[in-house]
């Protein structure tokens, strides 16, 4: 059995490297992005092999899915007249390419040597995490790390998401301030995109809710679920079934800050009930974590959707 797994690894790793090479080296940018999406999905398989199902879900949904949509959308909006591929647009010459190749090979070899030289009794926190997991009432140690033991990281992470969105919005041209992101998508009413836009969202909502709920005890969680919900929303927008909201809307902004605000509120309450910021009273760890995750899932979904939709391109209605 071990041999069969090793065989899978020996097939998967070259495929990942080949997809990465094609993503970087493809002649057309569109091809490169498609290879990047393939690469992300293969990488998700690698994460399953490394026993990291939570990461695999995040990689497939965020790394391959949303990043792919983001890059394809950017390519479609870039001026087509931009000097396509020939080297006259500031691409480096052969000498510089060679020097860069040598530098990068040296870096990769150095990192590889570091991997081979890692200490043999590998240090880690897996046993500590397993020992303390029952105290949280959660079954998924990664969720426990994200929301209980290292809540600071996650709180700051959702704030980073909001800051990135503010950064994107601040690039809006003045006349479009507070407007609607992206073009109004118009599609043939009998087209396949509209069909998928009608068929997939119910299933997507169900999967998103399940991934959120399952995240307490099994692979899943707020970020993966929020990404799936964002993908459903973006699909409906791209199919022309609904339109992106104007970013000046008050309700929209309340949803955006709702998740971080609930997390911060529960964290501050921890000062009184558990004696520490971001602490939970011992008997209520799981309910509070699920409450925070629910609020975060909604905020993350809307934030990610708007991040991918980009800066406003149409005036507010």
């Amino acid at each position: 059995m071990n041999g069969a797994w090793l065989l899978l690894d020996l097939v998967l790793v070259p495929m990942i490297l080949a997809a990465a090479l094609c993503a970087v080296g493809a002649r057309a940018q569109f091809t490169g992005i498609v290879f990047y999406i393939v690469y992300g999905l293969l990488l998700a398989l690698a994460w399953v092999r490394l026993g990291a199902e939570n990461v695999a879900l995040a990689e497939a949904a965020i790394g391959a899915g949303l990043t792919g949509v983001l890059l394809l959308g950017a390519l479609a909006r870039l001026p087509a007249a931009a000097p396509a591929e020939p080297g006259a647009d500031g691409s480096p010459g052969t000498a510089l390419r060679l020097a860069a190749a040598i530098l990068c090979a040296a870096l990769a070899l150095g990192l590889g040597a570091a991997v081979l030289a890692l200490p043999e009794p590998a240090p880690g926190l897996a046993d500590v995490a397993a020992a303390h997991l029952p105290a949280t009432g959660l079954g998924n140690p990664v969720t426990a790390v994200l929301l209980v033991w290292r809540g600071y990281d996650t709180l700051l992470e959702v704030v980073v998401l909001l800051l990135a969105l503010l950064g994107v919005w601040s690039l809006t041209p003045d006349p479009l301030w507070g407007g609607v992101p992206g073009p109004r998508h118009r599609t043939r009413p009998e087209g396949v995109l509209v069909f998928l836009g009608r068929v997939l969202p119910p299933a997507g909502l169900l999967v998103g809710a399940h991934v959120f709920w399952a995240g307490a005890d099994r692979p899943g969680g707020a970020f993966q679920a929020g990404t799936i919900l964002a993908a459903v929303w973006l699909l409906a927008i791209m199919a022309g079934l609904t339109d992106a909201p104007a970013v000046r809307g008050l309700a929209l902004r309340l949803v955006l800050v709702g998740g971080p605000a609930v997390f911060l509120g529960v964290g501050l309450a921890g000062l009184a009930t558990a004696g520490a910021f971001l602490g939970y009273p011992p008997d209520f760890v799981k309910p509070l974590v699920v409450l925070v995750e629910a609020a975060l899932t909604l905020s993350i979904a809307v934030t990610l959707g708007l991040l991918v939709a980009g800066a406003p391109e149409r005036p507010p209605r």
Binding site: A52, N54, V55, A58, E59, I62, G63, L66, T67, L70, G124, L125, A126, A129, P141, V142, A144, V145, L146, R150, D153, T154, E157, V160, L161, L163, A164, L165, G221, F223, L304, L307
Partner: peptide, 16 residues
């Protein structure tokens, strides 16, 4: 699980 949580955080920050 600790590096796994760090990686998930990293993936989300990379997207933003």
């Amino acid at each position: 699980p600790v590096p796994h949580a760090l990686i998930i955080t990293g993936i989300v920050v990379a997207l933003s």
